[in-house]
Write a protein that binds this DNA or RNA. Structure first.
Length: 206
DNA sequence: CGAGTTTGACCCGCGC
DNA sequence: GCGCGGGTCAAACTCG
C-alpha cells in the first residue's frame, strides 16, 4: 500500500498521488501514524520511506467488539507511540465500535491545529513517558461524537501528535469555501490554515 | 450571559 | 484484589 490509497476519509488529499507537502515552515506534516477504519482489512504495516512528504508508519484495523477494551492497535512505529484505544462504550448502552481513527505527527509550533471544525476541550492529562500534557477535545457540533487528542511528542517537543477518533457526521463549517480552495489550489498560496481546512472535506457515506 | 477552558475527581480496563 | 494509567465528567472559572 502506498499513500495513493486514501487511508482516511478525513484526509482526502492522501488520495492524490501527486501529493505535495504544502505546509509552511511552522507546520510540517510528518507522520501519519496509523489509520483505523472499522470494516477495513489493512492489517499490514506500512513502511514508507521519508522520501515521501509523509511517512506512514503503520495502519491497522480494529473494532472494540471483543471483550471490552480493545487493544487492537499496535504500531510498528519507530517511536512506539502509546495510543490506547480504550472504550467505555458499554456503560451507556453504546456500542463498543471504535469507528475511524487517524493519528499523525506533525512538526508544528502551535499545539492545536485549526482544522475547520469547532472543538470543545473537555480534558487535559499528563501521561506517562511524556512530560507534556495531553489535551482532549470533542467536536462541539450537536450530535457529532468525534474526538481528538493533542499532545506534544515526549521525545521531541517540536512535534505534535494529533489523534482523531471517529468521522464527522456533518460538514465542516467552511466546507463550501474550502472545496473551492482545493479546486483552485495554488501552491504559492498554501498555508497551514487553508490546508487543514481543506483536508476536512469529509464526505462520510451516510 | 452563553460558550469555552481549567482542573480535580472519578471511572474503568489492564497488568501484576 | 490492588495499583496504575488513560479517558471522561462536571463544577468553577474566564472571556468575549
Amino acid at each position: 500500500m502506498n499513500i495513493s490509497q486514501n487511508p482516511s476519509p478525513n484526509f482526502p488529499f492522501f488520495s492524490d498521488e501527486n501529493f505535495i507537502n504544502p505546509f509552511m515552515d511552522n507546520f510540517d506534516f510528518t507522520d501519519l501514524i496509523f489509520d483505523v477504519n472499522e470494516g477495513g482489512n489493512n492489517n499490514g504495516f506500512i513502511q514508507e520511506e521519508t522520501s515521501s512528504p509523509i511517512s506512514i508508519v503503520s495502519s491497522e484495523t480494529f473494532t472494540g467488539e471483543s471483550g471490552g477494551s480493545g487493544s487492537g492497535i499496535t504500531t510498528s512505529s519507530k517511536k512506539e507511540p502509546t495510543f490506547g484505544c480504550k472504550s467505555r462504550g458499554s456503560k451507556d448502552g453504546e456500542t463498543k465500535e471504535m469507528g475511524h481513527r487517524v493519528a499523525f505527527r506533525t512538526r508544528s509550533k502551535i499545539d492545536v491545529m485549526d482544522d475547520g471544525y469547532k472543538w470543545r476541550k473537555y480534558g487535559k492529562k499528563s501521561v506517562k513517558n511524556n512530560t507534556n500534557k495531553r489535551n482532549y477535545y470533542k467536536c462541539s457540533n450537536e450530535g457529532c461524537t468525534v474526538k481528538k487528542r493533542v499532545e506534544r511528542d515526549g521525545e521531541d517537543a517540536a512535534y505534535v501528535i494529533t489523534t482523531y477518533d471517529g468521522v464527522h457526521n456533518h460538514e465542516s463549517p467552511s466546507h463550501v469555501y474550502y472545496n473551492d480552495m482545493v479546486l483552485s489550489y495554488d501552491h504559492d498560496n498554501w498555508n497551514q490554515h487553508s490546508l487543514l481546512q481543506a483536508i476536512q472535506q469529509i464526505s462520510p457515506p451516510y
